[in-house]
Design a protein around this nucleic acid. Structure first.
Lengths: 352, 352
DNA sequence: CTGAAAGCGCTTACAG
DNA sequence: CTGAAAGCGCTTACAG
């Protein structure tokens, strides 16, 4: 376009509005709106004048004004524990994809496992009037969201149910998965099996502990309290817990790790122990992780599908947004045991 | 609060506004605004009436209206390649933390390595009037952002420079890092070293290739074209490339992998080759990754600091937002070679 | 200490 | 085919 010109005065700060475009094109505001929104009823000639004015001024519609008038922000909010945690990457991406398919952008943030920060973030998203809210809870009391949900905020919880309110939740079968994982260890001859999990206030942690206990009880094994350790997933805490289980008076021959972060630390500790000549301990971890198959031994896991969690949750959200009057539901996704080696190690024959 | 009541008619869809609160409290709109924003000049008695009305109605300020009037959205936009890629997790989180420290929320999305999608997403964020935009480019032509930047949109590119426009960029020293990594292999006796990188249109890929060539040339080694392979980072493409380099007429004894995804595939191929009895090939990868130290051999890498990239970029963004009139800058962060084993394997003695 | 009016930049509902 | 007026829910700039 040889005769297209740059804006004569590129105004910093204030951007041109439809009003400016209308003035420049010598048309009414509504005509500009029609052109910008591809609405019918504009002669080619008028449309051209408007388009030219748009280019000359560098106009771009202010969607944040549009949103105010339309009532919908075309935005989904996602509160998760930590944007940096690889477990949430595929979930995050899945939420984005479903949102995108529905024409919405994604605002997300980390609760940093802090219930207050979770609340602050979730309410900030409500204030922004996201169309829907997806929360991976850190706290165990979500009554703060009750007025929002009553006022019509579509809300779906993921990975763990909401605390003290009734709301949609999409989660993996933690109980069944853990039970299957521990049963797998038992089937390979283990009798003394340790469980290392997240904080007791985390729903998945207690569900997996329940699964562990069910498997032990189902096999008629005493689940010694010393073999259960719940708490922070920090490397220090987990390493200390594994070490204690391995070196106690009644050492375990296998460990069930309650989530991906725990598993990684347990792998480190077991690798260090193996290097110093100690006998090999079996391991099954909840959650799959990249390169699990390349470690030696490769790590047997109970895999959930984080992308499916995100996808199903967001689909549910958009069902609500499209007006479906659904009662709160609990949607449970199955887990899958992937045997790779570490979970098939048999206990050392009893000596002495 | 025993006498606090629920809203008498919880209106779905339409949420109460300041006007509703004002009517209920029997005060003016501005007084409600004062209370909501903690502005001075309201008697305790009036304030109480307003607070009560707010609770009774379940009022929450609509920030999306506020934003329109204030001119700033308190939002930062981030366009990256893939929310699911673990490499971007820490970067994403770092951007969030700096945004949060500045009172802003984060809207982010994946370009899926598609320049058109990148453009669409970046412009959608501009239309939402994010206060600032951070882009990890997929495309190599960013002139589409020129009118936005001219209109005042603070924009910082990360990981790779913008194409065909002058803008801030924060990146790692790809050239120096790759040169150091390849020099490390040369120092361990290798003469035939392969380079496997991303698409040629990706800036970091060509920079790292340049580093590879510089190291080879610096040691007086011929960089055979057959030892260079740029293209998709899909496992299939990379596996084929490694296999070709290992089985050709002039097989390499070491591989330099151009990024984390390439490295993982190379590790797989080399592990499979080692299992079938072939001789061990040395490997240095660009980008650190979780569990690199637990593989056998542990993987030597040229590490960049993704969190620092995100942090520095976002700090730069907020410098601009606070009015600093800065010329576009190129900020380069150093890399660090972490020797773990795979890069210190010496070539097999020449036979025949 | 309090509030009515104007305006942020769009869309909606009408009217010509 | 085109456009003036009203309104989305706030804040700003004033006035009392």
């Amino acid at each position: 376009m040889p005769h297209s010109r740059r804006s004569p005065e590129p105004r910093y700060g204030r951007r041109p509005t439809m009003k400016d475009v209308a003035a420049r094109a010598g048309v009414g505001l509504k005509t500009v709106s029609r052109v910008v929104n591809d609405e019918p009823g504009v002669t080619p000639d008028t449309e051209k004048r408007v388009q030219d004015a748009i280019e000359e001024l560098g106009f771009r519609r202010n969607d944040s004004a549009r949103v105010l008038r339309k009532g919908r922000t075309a935005t989904v909010g996602l509160v998760l524990e930590d944007l940096a945690d690889p477990f949430y990457g595929p979930l995050n991406r899945a939420v984005e994809e479903v949102a995108r398919a529905n024409g919405a952008l994604l605002i997300n943030g980390s609760s940093a496992e802090d219930p207050d920060r979770e609340r602050e973030l979730a309410l900030a998203l409500c204030a922004r009037r996201v169309d829907g809210l997806i929360v991976i809870p850190s706290g165990d009391d979500h009554r703060y969201l009750e007025p929002e949900i009553l006022a019509g905020m579509a809300t779906v919880f993921v990975d763990r149910p909401a605390g003290r309110i009734d709301a949609d939740v999409v989660l993996s079968d933690s109980f069944g998965g853990a039970r299957a994982g521990v049963a797998h260890l038992i089937a390979h001859g283990h009798r003394r099996i340790g469980f290392i999990g997240d904080h007791r206030r985390i729903h998945t942690a207690t569900e997996r502990l329940r699964g562990y206990r069910a498997a032990m009880a189902g096999a008629g094994l005493a689940a010694d309290g010393a073999w259960e350790s719940l708490g922070s997933t920090s490397p220090e805490r987990v390493a200390a817990a594994v070490t204690a289980m391995l070196t106690g008076p009644d050492p375990v021959t296998a460990v069930f790790a309650g989530n991906n972060r725990v598993t990684v630390t347990v792998v480190r500790v077991l690798a260090a122990a193996a290097a110093s000549g100690a006998r090999t301990v079996a391991l099954v971890g909840f959650d799959d992780f990249e390169l699990a198959d390349l470690l030696s031994p490769a790590v047997t896991v109970v895999a959930q599908d984080p992308a499916a969690l995100g996808r199903v949750a967001t689909e549910r959200l958009f069902q609500r947004l499209s007006g479906a009057d659904l009662p709160p539901a609990r949607i449970e996704l199955p887990t899958r045991l992937i045997a790779r080696g570490s979970g098939e190690i048999r206990p050392a024959p009893v000596t002495g």
